[in-house]
Amino acid sequence: MDLESELRQAMAEQVAGTTAPASLVADVKRRHRRRKARIHAAAGAAAATVAALALVPTYQSFRATPAGNPGTARTADGGPTLEQPERPPAPGSSASPSAKGEPRAGASSRPEAHPSAGRSADGPRKPGPGGVVDGLPGWITYIPDGLTAAGPCTVTGGAERETTTCKWRGSAGWLEIAMVKGSGLTGPRDLMKSPGLPGHTSVRGAPALTADRPGSGRQISWLARPGVGVTVSAGGSVETRLMRVAEGVRP
C-alpha cells in the first residue's frame, strides 16, 4: 500500500458520514436574497450620499446673500434699485444703451449698470474719460444693509488707467468701492491711498493690503486679476463688514 492509496482511504474515512443538510437549497436561496437586499441597501445609501453631496452646494448657492437689501438699497429719490444688472430690464421700461447693443462710454464691456430714471432722454454717452455708470455694477455682489447709493457710479481716468467708483451712505456708515483698470498695476500697493504700514491679508486667494484711512474708516486693496485692481473703503459700522464686501467684489 502506498501513500496515495492510504491518503484516499483516509479521506474516505474522514468524510464517510458527511451529508449535505436537507435545507441546503433553502439556505442558498436565503443567502442569495440576503445578498441582493444588502446590495440594494448599499446602492441606495451610495445614491443618497451622492445626491446629498450634489445638493448641498446647490442649496448653499441659493442661500447666498444677494447683493444689498432691496428694502434699503433704493436711492432717496426712488431711483434704481441695487439689483443685479444680469437681470433683463422690464419690458416697456426706458431702454438703456447696453440694451440697445450700443457701447457704453467709460465702462467695461460687461453689462454693468442700469440707467437712472432721468438719463434715458440724454441718449448714449460719448466715449471718453469721466463718464458716469449708473446704478450698481454687476461685479459688486454684496452691500451691507443700511446703506443707500450716494449716487451713480462714476468712471474717471483715461484709457491707461480707468477708475470706476461707487459710493454708499447711510445710518450704518459709508462704503466706497473703486475698481481700477490699467496696464501699469503691479500689485495692491499701487492702489493704496493711505500712508503708513499696511497689513497683509487675502481676498479670494489674492494677496491684499489693508490700511486705516486717516480720519476714519479702513480700506483694503488687491489685484483681482492682472490689470484690474479693487479698493474697498468703509467707515462706521460698515467697517466690520469690509472683508465681506471685498469678497463679494467680482470684477
Binding site: M11, Q14, V15, T18, T19, A20, P21, L24, D27, V28, R31, H32, R35
Partner: peptide, 25 residues
C-alpha cells in the same frame, strides 16, 4: 459530494457548509 470535497479542503464541517453555501449562491 461537493460538501465532502469542501470538508476535506477546509478541514472543518461548519466551514465546509458555509463555503459550499457561498459557492452555490
Amino acid at each position: 459530494a461537493l460538501l465532502r470535497t469542501a470538508a476535506l479542503m477546509c478541514g472543518a464541517r461548519q466551514d465546509a457548509e458555509d463555503v459550499l453555501q457561498t459557492a452555490l449562491e
